[in-house]
């Protein structure tokens, strides 16, 4: 038999970037255990519309856990209590009848609130713009199988490439660092032979952009990995640090004047 839940919500409402926000209490009644958290909010919003009130704004799109659009802090956890799960895939069977749920947006200086639970994550796009790519021209690619890549290496690159860019790692970090996000992209591309030629500039430029966006530094709390809906490992952060140090060292060597 299907269970239904009655819940009390405390949701962060904020009219726009400059407005002062606050928690507002709502009751969510008769929610199916099979509904996702976002479907629960849909129902609350339909109720608000019926009363002539403005619905709660939140980002979402694919609702399959892959587009990375959704994200909110639920009871203090980025994407809620269930591990490796985006909030669109978090189902109400994870909650108890009568439970109080606190919902708020990602909190980070580099993610300004746009409205309610919607934040601006343009800073992550700008980190990619700084070097998160392989400069290959359309049409100039060699035959795909001319460059074998060891399966282990390719699988490892995939593990890093699975990042969906949701920003949970930043929201979960006490320093609001974007290290896991940046590390995942650097690792994906630097592990592959195709990414080799730009390896040093990539890591240096991406790290510089990350700093310029106002993200904090990593102090090894590993909260990012706990919050990551795609199980991306903090080992990639260690790799990022190694890549960054050796790239910086190599750049210094090149800058040093040669002795005649």
């Amino acid at each position: 038999m299907e269970k239904s839940l009655n819940l009390v919500l405390h949701v962060w409402r904020q009219k726009n970037r400059d407005a002062k926000g606050q928690f507002v209490r709502y009751e969510a009644k008769n929610i199916s255990e099979h509904a996702s958290l976002l479907e629960m909010l849909d129902q609350v919003n339909e109720g608000l519309l019926e009363k002539g009130e403005e619905p709660i704004a939140f980002d979402h799109d694919c609702r399959e856990g892959i587009c990375g659009a959704c994200g909110m802090i639920v009871n203090g956890h980025a994407h809620g209590p269930r591990k490796a799960t985006t909030v669109c895939q978090l189902h109400m069977r994870e909650f108890q009848d009568g439970e109080e749920i606190w919902i708020e947006p990602w909190r980070a200086a580099a993610f300004p609130v746009v409205r309610d639970l919607v934040v601006d994550r343009g800073s992550l796009d700008r980190i990619v713009q700084a070097g998160g790519f392989i400069s290959t021209r359309t049409g100039s690619a060699p035959e795909a199988n001319s460059l074998p890549v060891a399966k282990e290496k390719s699988d490892r690159a995939f593990d890093a490439a699975a990042c969906i860019g949701c920003g949970a790692c930043v929201a979960a970090c006490p320093n609001a660092a974007a290290m896991l996000f940046t590390a995942a992209k650097v690792a994906h591309l630097n592990l592959l032979p195709q990414g080799e030629p730009e390896r040093d500039t990539r890591v240096r430029n991406m790290v510089a952009q990350m700093d310029a966006e106002g993200f904090g530094h990593c102090t090894n709390h590993y909260e990012c990995m706990e919050a990551c809906p795609k199980h991306i490992s903090v080992e990639f952060i260690a790799q990022l640090n190694r890549e960054f140090m050796s790239a910086t060292a190599r750049a210094r060597q090149e800058l040093r004047p040669r002795r005649k």
């Binding site: 392989i134 690619a141 060891a150 390719s154 995939f158 490439a161 994906h188 990414g195």
Partner: peptide, 16 residues
């Protein structure tokens, strides 16, 4: 060809 050059991590066999 294009996607492999961009670094798309397609599934590979043990031969690479």
């Amino acid at each position: 060809d294009q996607c492999v050059a961009q670094g798309v991590p397609f599934a590979r066999e043990y031969s690479g």
